[in-house]
Design a binder for these strands. Structure first.
Lengths: 341, 341
DNA sequence: CTGTTAGCGCTTTCAA
DNA sequence: TTGAAAGCGCTAACAG
């Protein structure tokens, strides 16, 4: 039988209450008594039963997700996954609140975070815009004991508890590799469509893409990125322009959202060889485009995994429990039409 | 406050014991009383607290993994992950036993499974060889209430509770796609190395690979698969033969284990264009080969994920709790040197 | 067939 | 600074 608090109390020659005080390092224990208990813990190999502790405490984990509003497919799916997680709240002892703020709006984000100060949750998961103010606000929360998880987009050099998202530089490099390999030495122009170069993820993807493409096949000409703000209409227009104007457009990479526009433009092309098309995020639209051969590769981050990982990490951090690092790492999924889930 | 058994008992006008009986559908409750309680459950929205139940029951989940012995890197890593899981046993209330049986040895497997009959665990996860006897043995365990999870390799049409592994037909198709796309219309010969054509996984991979390659570029000639029984030395020899003999060997696919042999053979090639090389399972060796450009693509199944999924599913099945399907699905990971974890 | 009562391992008043 | 005792939500004897 694994030792319990009773065994521990007996073994240390103190009462249950004292054991509990030491275990939860609460004040009011003489240093000598404390060390006597700690010694006993080591001696009998006591490991505290978190489930029992949570039961006794009636503990639930109040967790807040702060995410962008708007109808970008990926964010829609992220929010959907948060709703799904709410479904599991009773079983997982969580109480999840989702706060939506306008995308790319630092002030709104700051306000939302500040509002959490009054009644701080156990953890905050946030799709962060990177400004000084945002960092300050998150730091303040962290200082008051809130576990901070950055979601999807990380804050460079910021001491969050965890990042639940992918390495976008690596994602860009992966796109570059696949583009170059699929073109196998061919030369020509590559069109790039981005959301906004003000967002870190997109910057990183572009940098990685260019780097890798240049490494493998420097003869390819990468056209300047078209910023379409994740808007399908603008993506559509930009893609048409690229396809019509660029002589020898052999590849096209949409590193942002708005794939519906890309798919529409590609689908309208006259038959004949299509450029290699690579985009991000698996949605109903991109899945259909992959299956139909309109898009060749989809790079994906699993929103469900991100949300579940964020929750597990916030809970773990909030009670000092270890996390399984490999489990919480978010992969850069590469989907061809052949390995769709 | 969420309703408890007390509320339920009161609301149904019965005692705690009766509530408990219907909750765990134990016998000895009049049908009318039972329905009265069930009604109350629905009325007040009672959801049972599994953690508290487990505490009261002192419940632990005895789980048995039956896996092949031998030094194939993937199986080594699978066993390592099982050991890792043991590490978490106290927290997860599991008691994990790992039984090793010689690879591909149906009789030994049957014997190992039969031995579980005396004291059946809550769940069995097994890397199964597909024979009638094995199926019969697993069915018998299932009939006595044991949750059955097939690991890595599934049993076609068998009613297991879950399969924790990848779709190998899809994996083969993915390999075929990548091979064809990387070769971009080039013609030539493709060498294939397999472990054993008696194993379902390998059959499936080969079928998928051929199919897909033929669809995309029928001019490629796929050489007959060399069966090397996952042995690095034999793989090495086979690869050398292929590289030396085959005029215009443009690609090589190892769908089995023994990648050390493949890597050795490729590394010894005179400089000049190498064939596109695709293999399975990310290990220290294949990682280094990817990084060094010796291998182009590694398809992977995450052994850690498989083990964790198997455990979660066995626990869930064993107490009738739902599983999060998307979380337990094992992906076909595609690794290039750019997106290594 | 149904109910009473004493726990599971830990926390939390309330006294001392 | 310490301890005794009641209780978290559920289960399990043991009586009736």
């Amino acid at each position: 039988m694994r030792p319990t608090v009773h065994d521990l109390a007996q073994s240390a020659g103190v009462s249950l209450a004292t054991v509990d005080r030491v275990l939860n390092n609460r004040p009011g224990v003489k240093a000598s008594t404390r060390s006597r208990v700690e010694e006993a813990i080591a001696r009998i190999g006591f490991v505290r039963d978190v489930a029992a502790a949570n039961l006794a405490k009636g503990r639930i984990y109040p967790l807040t997700f702060v995410v962008p509003s708007g109808d970008n497919s990926f964010m829609v799916s992220l929010r959907h996954q948060i709703e799904e997680a709410k479904t599991r709240s009773i079983a997982e002892r969580t109480e999840i609140v989702m706060v939506e703020v306008p995308a790319f709006d630092a002030e709104a984000l700051v306000a939302a975070l500040r509002a959490l100060r009054n009644d701080p949750p156990a953890g905050v998961a946030v799709v962060a815009v990177d400004t000084e103010e945002v960092r300050r606000e998150l730091l303040a929360l962290k200082a008051s004991g809130v576990a901070i998880v950055t979601l999807v987009s990380d804050l460079e050099g910021f001491d969050r508890d965890h990042f639940a998202g992918v390495d976008n530089l690596a994602a860009g490099r992966t796109a570059g590799s696949l583009m170059a390999r699929f073109l196998a030495g061919k030369t020509g122009r590559i069109g790039v469509i981005a959301g906004s170069m003000l967002v870190r993820d997109h910057q990183d993807r572009l940098i990685g893409f260019r780097e890798r493409l240049a490494e493998i096949n420097p003869s390819l000409v990468i056209l300047p990125a078209e910023e379409c703000h994740d808007d399908p209409h603008r993506v559509d227009a930009a893609a048409r322009r690229l396809l019509a104007e660029a002589e020898g457009l052999v590849g096209i990479y949409n590193l942002g959202a708005g794939n519906r526009g890309l798919i529409a433009a590609l689908s309208l092309m006259p038959s004949g060889p299509r450029p290699v098309a690579i985009a991000h995020e698996l949605t109903d639209h991109t899945r259909a485009a992959l299956e139909g051969g309109v898009i060749d590769v989809i790079l994906n981050q699993d929103a469900g995994h991100e949300v579940r990982a964020a929750i597990r990490v916030m809970k773990a951090k909030s009670d000092g429990t270890p996390v399984i690092a490999a489990q919480e790492r978010i992969r850069i999924d590469i989907f061809l039409k052949d390995n769709l889930p």
